[in-house]
Amino acid sequence: MRIGVLALQGAFAEHIAVLHRLKVEALPVRLPKELNGLDGLVIPGGESTSISKLMLSYNLLSEIVNLAKNGLPVFGTCAGMILLASKTSDSDIKPLGVMAITVRRNAFGRQKESFETELPIVVLGEKPFPGIFIRAPIIEQASSEVEILARLDDSTSVAARQGNTLASAFHPELTGDLRFHRYFLDIVAGHQ
């Protein structure tokens, strides 16, 4: 299994480290040719405006959209979730539009509102998942084909799956808990 991690800006090395711990080949992706032969793609957290602008250079954006629309499993965290959305609150960002969700950026406010909380996530088992939310987005709207995987206490949607695409507003790659990545790898295995 070969998983690419979009390495334009952000916490890509953290995702690669988690995938290595799960004994999976993980490669940084900066140019379209590096998308060849991948079984899945991770879009990491970072600054969504930076990543979005860097994706426009070298034609990465359209290549990733094509692959995702043809079923390549894609997992986006935080900025990655914003980029997977169909619509965002921010006109500066050109999202990929591969998930039928509307996402609000910096939905909790500035860094001083960044927080940690325990999240119940049924598909990951009984033990709550450590949610690390850093200037995090939320899912404001989701169409009926989207499955919401995690909600905060006030029922705000913060993780979702639609077919082979997976998104979280929080950062599983910063936790040491491998269950979210394992869940993504199950999607990849199912697709193969």
Binding site: A7, L8, Q9, G10, A11, F12, A13, E14, G45, G46, E47, S50, C78, A79, Q111, K112, E113, S114, F115, E116, T117, I132, F133, I134, R135, H171, L174
Partner: peptide, 20 residues
């Protein structure tokens, strides 16, 4: 819900990586 933890502080720096 806890704000201002070490993880969210060091974590924001991690989100800046590879950037200018």
């Amino acid at each position: 819900m806890e704000t201002g933890t070490w993880k969210v502080k060091a974590g924001l720096a991690q989100m800046l990586k590879g950037g200018v």
